[in-house]
């Protein structure tokens, strides 16, 4: 899957063992945006031994926060089943909002390898 970025949605790339997301996330319809991604992610996670995720967001709205919460929950559950999951939350050094958001999600990740990366 490769979705080009729009002014309201990030670029999304999903292959067999990698998911990358980069840009802004405040879609007109969060469900229409989130569902295909979560479905494909579940498929790829079921088929893989290890999976890595890289997120580099500039902004996401509160409706999208629920999507990211569900997204990380799926990753943590998969890691808890014994698969190797690594996540990078990349944020710009001066972007406190995105740093804090990354720290918020980090709190719930116990088994999955989760790293905050300043860029």
């Amino acid at each position: 899957m490769h979705l080009e970025a729009t002014n309201r949605t990030p670029e999304v790339l999903i292959s067999d063992s990698v998911l990358e997301m980069k840009g802004e996330c405040y879609p007109e319809d969060i469900t229409a945006f989130a569902e295909p991604i979560l479905e494909l992610l579940a498929e790829k996670l079921a088929a893989c031994d290890s999976f890595s995720v890289s997120l580099e967001l500039r902004y996401f709205n509160s409706s999208s926060a629920k999507f990211f919460f569900d997204f990380f929950e799926v990753l943590e559950e998969t890691a808890a089943k014994g698969k190797s999951i690594s996540i990078q939350w990349r944020y710009r050094s001066s972007d406190n909002s995105m740093k804090e958001a990354g720290e918020d999600f980090e709190e719930d990740m116990e088994v999955a390898d989760y790293q905050l990366v300043e860029i």
Binding site: Y26, R58, Y59, N61, S62, R92, S94, D95, N96, S97
Partner: peptide, 18 residues
């Protein structure tokens, strides 16, 4: 030009508009 400040302003604008 402060990224943190402007992201907060924009974020609040989006929440208010929605």
């Amino acid at each position: 030009h402060d990224i943190d400040l402007t992201t907060r302003v924009f974020g609040i604008f989006i929440e208010q508009a929605q």
